Simulated scan of single mutants.
Amino acid sequence: MSTQETNEHDQKGSYVHKGTSFDRDMNYIPTRITKDGEDGYPVEADRYRLVASRACPWANRTIIVRRLLGLEGAISMGIAGPTHDKRSWTFDLDEGGKEPVLGIERLQEAYFKRIPDYPRGITVPAIVDTRDGAVVTNDFGQITLDMGSQWTEFQREGAPDLYPEHLRAEIDELNDWMLHRINNGVYKTGFAGSQEAYEKEYHLLWEALDELEERLSTRRYLMGPSITEADVRLFPTLVRFDPVYHGHFKANRQTLATMPNLWNYLKDLFQTPGFGDTIDFQHIKEHYYVVHTDINPTQIVPLGPDMSHIMEPHDRDRFETDTWGPGGTAPEPPLASEVVDPAHTPLHVTGR
């Protein structure tokens, strides 16, 4: 038996149901923003706003890709607070509790403008059309692919090709496997409603992490010498593992810091522009420990672990390396308005 849940940010109020397994609803608004505007939403600079949360791993991917491709000048970004109630993500970080561009207090308002009484979870990431304030899409998997393929006119010079044609089949296969075994695997472990379901998902998760530990023993990144969409999809899960998933989700066979290839790979990416500078550890911990009251009823947010060691030297440059791929370069520093609070990260970055 399984319980139908949506994204972990889906405001259902309860995430664990006794005697059941966690089953994520993967149905999202499929509308795309494309060059030809086939779905009614053409690529257009300054029209769309990416609404994300630094707490959410699925939204974290879109923040990273937007940075790597240099789309900050074409797609603006709003950041929701790290916690939410049963109804919606809120904009409590903004003055007056209102999103400064969209003028709304809850992301739910943008969903209802598009689909009145939207029946599924109010999830991030979401792209909203600033012309009418209605959500366009929340399909996190397609959003990043479209940023790479549909928004080329507005990408920065030297933007990497994160989804190269000759690797797409292999990337797709790996991404699908990681989605079910790792990205969602941590949730299936943490939201298990029975000992049997927990133990099954725990073992499947660690088998998958062991496979990645072996894969990363022969190459710098998941697909070889260059960063791809696959690395973008794995990083947000790995960076949350020791601070949250290890304890909060009981995925506690060991910490990633004890796995030399995965840990050094994570340090490598964290220290790469566009990855670690998007991470807010305080938002991450506040979200999981405050929102998941059926797992953490006291809502106490732990002070640890100390993540400063993520900035220590790594050994990944021993492998063949072309980090940004042919013709690619590192992104510019984050916009000054998008720099993560230094108190929430071991990184010290200067915005532009």
Score class of each variant (00 low, 15 high):
11 Q>E: 07
14 S>N: 05
19 G>L: 10
20 T>N: 08
22 F>V: 10
25 D>S: 11
28 Y>G: 07
31 T>C: 06
44 E>P: 04
48 Y>R: 02
49 R>L: 13
52 A>E: 08
53 S>R: 03
58 W>F: 13
83 T>F: 07
84 H>A: 11
91 F>T: 05
96 G>A: 08
99 E>M: 05
99 E>K: 09
102 L>N: 06
104 I>C: 08
104 I>V: 15
108 Q>E: 15
112 F>A: 06
113 K>T: 12
130 T>A: 05
131 R>G: 00
135 V>L: 14
140 F>H: 15
152 T>R: 13
164 P>T: 06
165 E>C: 03
173 E>M: 14
180 H>C: 01
183 N>A: 12
183 N>H: 08
186 V>M: 03
189 T>G: 09
194 S>E: 02
212 L>S: 08
226 S>A: 15
231 D>W: 05
234 L>H: 10
236 P>R: 11
243 P>F: 12
249 F>S: 13
251 A>H: 03
251 A>W: 02
277 D>F: 10
279 I>R: 03
297 P>L: 12
299 Q>N: 11
301 V>R: 09
309 H>F: 14
309 H>M: 14
310 I>V: 15
312 E>I: 01
315 D>N: 12
315 D>E: 14
317 D>P: 00
321 T>M: 11
324 W>E: 01
325 G>S: 07
325 G>C: 05
327 G>P: 01
332 E>M: 04
333 P>Q: 04
339 V>I: 13
347 L>K: 15
351 G>Q: 00
